[in-house]
Nucleic acid binder design. Structure first.
Length: 500
RNA sequence: GGGGCGUUAGCUCAAUUGGUAGAGCUGCGGACUUUUAAUCCGUAGGUUCUGGGUUCGAGCCCCAGGCGCCCUACCA
């Protein structure tokens, strides 16, 4: 009664939710706690399974255990009830409640009070059923937590939107959703271990930044009331990690969130997890090797193999050395005509027309090269491939190539057709960096809202001397995509969705 | 951003040409001491996403909007 007063509209609820609320109220009225604070559990379901791996059918053990889990299936008959419980790691265990053992009253209460989805506590003997199913024959049961909402049907796939909006339900219903959480945690853990083995230090740099830089992307803007200034949610940690290297943290990494105020699809999310690492005296050659090792070690650690099995059942080989391509050479090959850093913009536009790429006429040489390359080459790349030596003008934080003019020491790592990581020999000359950032600021003033701002403090740091260094950025969500074949919204536990 | 498709019971989905909105599972009532998505009998469950319009009559046609998905463009 009081419940109905406390939650007005209870009569308007769908029947199944109303019934469950009434059961909760009845339990309380009978003096039974539907949400007890503690239960004398002695074993996890997994522990029971592991302790009795191969009992014969119809066996008894004399061993009494107390367990708890969520009710997934109920098979009630007159005097003997079966239920299947599941706990957090996905382990399932059958429970049998017989009138002879648990008593008529408790059995009736079981049938009257328990719904699919409830958490229950069971104490009883470990046995096997006649069919050989490992079971607990209850001599006592208690409600552990009453569920007020019905679970979706277990043998039909949940609508994708519901899976994303109500990930908790997805996690209850779908083992693959739980697997992803564990795989992701394993990958992140493996990355950290790989870094620690190599003597890298993990740092956390600002997510709220006063300057917009470190990548070319549109930022989210927010406001600090206390400081009365607008702040940017970071699009990259790069400029702060470089400050670390200047300061003598010569092997440094960060795994954290970036925010980009841009579109979202199966390979893009407004907030995404990013790994960046910087190493003094490394180059884009050595950090490519390390990037490959990080990925291979993560695959080995989480899946036990470098040949991972994707969602669709196909295998994907991450092992061994990876292919390396030159951007200009591979583009020249695809065009059938040589493209170099000297190729004039007009000619590149003609190429674009010829191959059917619709490109913004305002694009300069560097952007045209990258767009043409993406149009003609990137889609062909299935096996892991490092694409090297990008146009200088689109790589404002990258060192000029040591011998090839007009080209930057930068690679992008492509896996299954999408970009997984990027690596540079870092530009550390503060004078050249000032020129590049001044040009970026000019682009910004001209309306390019992806252009970086001129970060005087970053330049000041470089002026104190940054050792020659290599740096890498890798998307964690995309790494999971690469190793599972799933879309980005499956690798992110709670991706951004518009309010219902 | 542009185009297409979808939105119906707790869940997954039907509904012919515009003519009483159905099924399976779930729920509720009953039977059943070895089930595995238990089975059997009975039964309930709807603001058809929202707002407007056309029509004797709209889940269906028209207009506007919300949310989602696909294609397309862009960023990692």
């Amino acid at each position: 009664m009081t419940d109905q007063q406390q939650s007005p509209g209870v009569d308007d609820l769908p029947e199944q939710m109303r019934v469950r609320r009434e059961k909760r109220a009845r339990l309380l009225a009978e003096g039974t706690e539907p949400y007890p604070v503690q239960l004398p559990r002695t074993h996890s379901l997994r522990q029971v399974r592991e302790a009795y791996p191969d009992l014969a059918p119809d066996a008894t053990t004399g061993d009494v255990v107390a367990v708890a889990g969520r009710v997934l299936f109920v098979r009630n008959s007159g005097k003997l009830c079966f239920t299947t419980l599941r706990e957090g790691d996905g382990t399932e265990l059958q429970v049998m409640l017989s009138r002879d053992k648990v008593g008529e009253e408790a059995l009736a209460a079981w049938k009257a009070d328990v719904d699919l989805g409830d958490h229950v506590f069971i104490r009883g003997e470990v046995i096997t059923s006649r069919r050989g199913e490992l079971s607990i024959l209850a001599d006592e049961w208690r409600m552990a937590a009453k569920a007020l909402r019905p679970l979706p049907v277990s043998h039909k796939p949940l609508a994708e939107e519901t899976r994303v909006r109500q990930r908790y339900v997805d996690l209850i219903m779908r083992g693959q959703a739980r697997d992803m959480v564990r795989s992701r945690a394993g990958v992140v853990r493996s990355l950290r271990e790989s870094f620690h083995q190599r003597g890298f230090l993990e740092v956390e740099t600002p997510m709220l930044q006063t300057m917009h830089g470190g990548a070319t992307a549109r930022p989210f803007v927010t406001h600090s009331n206390a400081f009365d200034i607008d702040l940017y949610l970071r699009i990259a940690p790069e400029l702060y990690l470089k400050r670390c290297v200047v300061g003598g943290i010569e092997k440094v990494f960060e795994i954290n969130r970036n925010f980009r105020n841009e579109g979202s699809d199966s390979t893009h999310s407004p907030e995404f997890a990013m790994l960046e690492f910087y190493e003094a005296y490394a180059t884009y050659d050595t950090n490519a090797v390390m990037t490959r090792e990080l990925v291979q070690e993560a695959a080995e650690s989480v899946f036990g193999t470098q040949v991972v099995t994707l969602h669709d059942g196909t295998e994907y080989d991450l092992s061994g050395e990876w292919t390396t391509l030159s951007m200009y050479e591979s583009l020249s090959e695809a065009l059938g005509e040589e493209a170099t850093p000297e190729t004039p913009v007009e000619l590149l536009r003609k190429h674009a027309q010829r191959v059917g790429a619709e490109l913004d006429p305002k694009l300069g040489h560097g952007k045209l090269i990258e767009e043409l390359w993406e149009h003609l080459v990137s889609g062909q790349l299935h096996a892991p491939t490092f694409v090297r030596d990008f146009p200088v003008e689109t790589s404002p934080l990258t060192r000029q190539h040591r011998s090839i003019p007009g080209v930057a020491e930068k690679w992008d790592l492509y896996i299954r057709g999408f970009e997984l990581a990027t690596g540079y020999s870092e530009l550390v000359d503060p004078v050249v960096e000032r020129e590049r950032l001044t040009e970026q600021a000019r682009l910004g003033a001209a309306g390019d809202d992806e252009a970086m701002q001129l970060d005087e403090d970053f330049l000041r740091a470089l002026e104190y001397g940054m050792p020659p260094s290599g740096g890498v950025g890798m998307g964690i969500d995309r790494l999971l995509m690469a190793m599972t074949g799933l879309g980005m919204r499956e690798t992110i536990l709670f991706p951004l969705v518009k309010p219902e």
